[in-house]
């Protein structure tokens, strides 16, 4: 998903390299001139002194050396849907990493730039979330509640995660908590049948809290490992719907609240993630539709702004199209071409 960001980052890296290198040649020359003038004096220690001046001399990277490349990086990140505040933070991290850093003239620039970029991105990516390990180390049934705005792919994600957990040897029950949208119960019901998972459902228009309460009761009675609770999409600026979610939370007492959003969302992703976090909380994030977009900047932004780990990335329409998120892998993918 990161192809585009990756190639653009490479250009910026080269620019940073050359910015720093230019500064090096500028400063490198005057170092030689006084050395040559002194030569007639002819002391034996001189050769060593020149060597120290040219080879071991350290350069301090200044902000002006990299400012052009930095503003280009800013545009690159914005173009790739990295949200505005997050972009600013990455740039600030990078400046902190690079400016004032001493390096020796002989030392290659590439390594310094690369590690600084990796660190700047790593800082905002955060850590992933190991769901398998979480389920193993917590009391069963582990109750997971899915939330998010309309059309982000909650229902599909519930089905995919159900399938993923089933393949990993856990027993799963799904609660059809979207009682609002027409066709939602039919949708999750078909998914559950296809992947062979038990589903608890009520009528359309019923109380979602009641459905999910029943689902938890079923899980307790039948020793099921994991409860996946689907809910209706809702906007964060609708108080009554957020209250309903709050009620669901009180009634079913989820162990984990997973916030679902799409990887192609723009700056609003950050605003609504924040609202959901404030009203009902969120322990982890799943980003869907990551296959739509070769950029993937929203993934970076949301993970950072909500301050919660990314659990999964949805990458297609099949049940297998979901991959556990690992920040190391993303950074590896972004800079993977470097030897």
């Amino acid at each position: 998903m990161f192809e585009k960001l990756k190639s653009r980052l490479k250009e910026v890296r080269n620019k940073l390299d050359s910015g720093i290198n230019e500064a090096a040649t500028r400063e490198g020359q005057p170092a030689e001139v006084p050395a040559a003038e002194k030569r007639p004096a002819g002391s034996t220690g001189l050769v060593d002194r020149v060597k120290v001046l040219i080879v071991d001399r350290e350069l301090v990277i200044s902000e002006s050396d990299i400012s052009e490349a930095l503003s280009e990086l800013e545009i690159v990140l914005l173009e790739n849907d990295v949200a505005f505040p997050v972009t600013e933070e990455i740039i600030a991290n990078l400046v902190k990493e690079l400016v004032g850093k001493r390096r020796k003239i002989g030392e290659p620039v590439d390594a310094i730039v690369l590690s600084a970029l990796k660190k700047a991105l790593g800082d905002v990516l955060g850590e992933g979330f190991d769901i398998i390990n979480y389920i193993k180390t917590h009391e069963h049934p582990v109750k997971i509640l899915f939330t998010g705005v309309n059309g982000t792919g909650k229902t599909t994600t519930v089905a995919k995660i159900g399938y993923f957990l089933k393949k990993n040897g856990f027993s799963v029950v799904i609660g059809a908590g979207d009682t609002f949208r027409a066709g939602a119960i039919e949708q999750i019901d078909v998914h559950a049948q296809r992947i062979g998972i038990k589903i608890i459902q009520h009528q359309q228009g019923g109380d979602p809290s009641a459905v999910l309460f029943d689902t938890v009761q079923y899980a307790v009675a039948h020793n099921v490992d994991v409860v996946l609770a689907d809910t209706a999409g809702r906007f964060h600026n609708r108080a009554n719907l957020m209250n309903q979610l709050e009620k669901i939370r009180r009634v079913m007492k989820p162990d984990l609240i997973v916030y679902v959003d799409e990887a192609v969302a723009g700056n609003d992703a950050v605003i609504r993630a924040d609202e959901f976090e404030k009203t009902v909380g969120a322990d982890a994030v799943v980003l869907t539709k990551a296959d739509m977009d070769p950029r993937g900047g929203a993934a970076i932004s949301i993970a950072h702004t909500i301050g919660k780990p990314l659990m999964f990335l949805g990458t297609g329409q099949g049940y297998d199209d979901i991959s556990p998120f690992s920040p190391e892998k993303v950074i590896e993918e972004l800079f993977g071409d470097v030897a």
Binding site: G183, A184, E186, Q187, H191
Partner: peptide
Amino acid sequence: TFRPGAYEQISTL
């Protein structure tokens, strides 16, 4: 023809 429940959704509406 792909998403489960799509027909139920539109026909209900």
